[in-house]
Amino acid sequence: MARNLSEAQGWARRWAGGFWILGIWLTGCTAQSPSILAPVSPKGRAEAELFWFILLITAGVFVLVETLLLYAVFRFRARDLQAIPPQIHGNNALEISWTTATALGLAIIFALTWRTMAATSTPPADALPVKVIGRQWWWEFQYPTLGITTANELVIPVGRPIRALVTSADVIHSFWVPQLGGKMDAIPGRENPVWLQSDVEGVFYGQCAELCGISHANMRLRVRAVSEAEFQRWVEAQRAPAAQPVEPLAQQGYQVFMSKACVGCHAIEGTPAQGKVGPNLTHFGSRTTIAAGLLENTPENLARWLDNPQAVKPGALMPRLGLTPEEIQALVAYLLSLK
């Protein structure tokens, strides 16, 4: 039975893949999309296969029903407005047939749904645990077995299953990286496990999928899937304490950071800054984006953010500190030195 279902799914995918409008769409305007139909994980692939299978069935029903409807409307247009057609009140055999056919079709879809669900809802036992914490409006990632805390960019080793434990520190968010599989809600007081994995190296776009306040649209994230060797190097670098500033400007930035309100919210390991409200900045310079994936991590963008966070991300909880341009330049130099 399971094999037959699996064959049916593969067959469905091949046929539905030829469905012309989707073909045009896939190759056309959304080629760069974080599409659920371009999965790179076992879970994402199983979900996409189920999608194609249901599409095949529903496309068939769609064509059948719309054809019957259009045929009836055009074929039986009244030519004589006084004509009275035969008064037919129903047909039991016909009605029982279409009821049964519908129920059978649904039973098949449900069987495949159950099978896919059972195969993908629980992460494998040997998975690497990662805690995903949604916060207004950014993501915190903790690797409890590795002692690493980072933000907005999740680095994972390619091919290795990840057990993401999703939760929230404030309101409900939803953690979603389409190409790695379905979303999981981040609910305060709960830890929901979800299986993440990437079978290819690359950067995968994701973002919050549950309305969580003003900057819901600006709560983005990236998952970077890297080779096992590169992941090990990354882990070692992340576990090291923060780099000491060397450049004079960066040293000046260090002073600004430690003397301003920054320390109240941010932690930089190995320094007096131990705030827990905002993102951990120990290895800030190693990240490719800032402000929950809104901007590339460049000196210009970082200066823009430090000058007025709300202008970049409306509602951002980081206050506008009224920094002078000199202080901002110094902070940029310091923060980007935290590789």
């Binding site: 994402g44 189920l50 999608f51 719309e66 879809i109 749904t113 896919t116 389409p178 599989g181």
Partner: peptide
């Protein structure tokens, strides 16, 4: 009738839990 059929059929994707994990809230 023509349009409601489309809405009904797309509802089946949402009833299928693993597909819903992907397309819900989209």
């Amino acid at each position: 009738v023509a349009l409601f059929v489309i809405g009904g059929l797309s509802g089946l994707f949402l009833a299928a839990v693993p597909v819903d994990w992907q397309v819900t809230d989209t």
